[in-house]
Design a protein around this nucleic acid. Sequence first.
DNA 1: GACGTGTAACTACCTCGGTAGTATTACCGT
DNA 2: ACGGTAATACTACCGAGGTAGTTACACGTC
Lengths: 128, 128
Amino acid sequence: MPAPPLRLGDLQLRILEVLWEHPDAGVGAVHEALKPERDLAYTTVATMLRKMEARGLVTHREEGRSFLYRAAVAADDVNRSAGDHFVERLFEGSLADAVSHLLTTREVSRGELEQLEKLIREAKRRAK
Amino acid sequence: MPAPPLRLGDLQLRILEVLWEHPDAGVGAVHEALKPERDLAYTTVATMLRKMEARGLVTHREEGRSFLYRAAVAADDVNRSAGDHFVERLFEGSLADAVSHLLTTREVSRGELEQLEKLIREAKRRAK
DNA sequence: GACGTGTAACTACCTCGGTAGTATTACCGT
DNA sequence: ACGGTAATACTACCGAGGTAGTTACACGTC
């Protein structure tokens, strides 16, 4: 199980997110899904997909004249990796510091706070 | 005061952290401080510092034959920027989702959990 | 006054993400 | 059978982070 650094750029991440939601999407479908937020050339998406396949991030299978792509890495792994990097890099691994910073530097609604409390209670029960 | 993207690489961030702790450090001092974790050539640090100055991340002042560097951006701004990027990019801006993910994908000590609870209570009081 | 040492400046590279143009291929409809 | 179209393949380019060698300079020392 190779667990390579998993260091993704923004576009690569967005592409993966599209593929997680729509497995077996073709280049055109991915391009289309990204259209609203990024006005990329069709070939740009195709190139990116090929580069990502070379890195083992996605796989493809042929379907007639088209390639259908699938993510080859799990969303959880990617997110966790990014989370680790974030906490590690800025807060020396201290989750509390990281969350503290997130909490104090932005507006958080009361609802979100309550949601967080619940989360922590659950975590405590789990850790018991 | 232009607030450029503030998108830093790992090394740049480490250098800034050194400068935040030791303002007016020379190239040698920064190099030395980074020695344990990264075995870089002296000139690599010097080059990086010059590149960062060009981007407005640091400033320098001459002191005899040496350059003394200072961070030109605040730690809070950098951290906040990174936090925003993290939450935005992976969790569509939902802080609760982000924290939830951080909490569930790693081991968190009981002490940390209690620390977090306190933080949330404070945030609630603040938000009233 | 010549010399060695440390410092900064300049230049060059490599990698990677991102972007896109051009070429090629294969299919389909008429 | 042919031409259009849509797909992939190939190639190139840019910028940025990161790395480091080479050069130039200024200083103190002998």
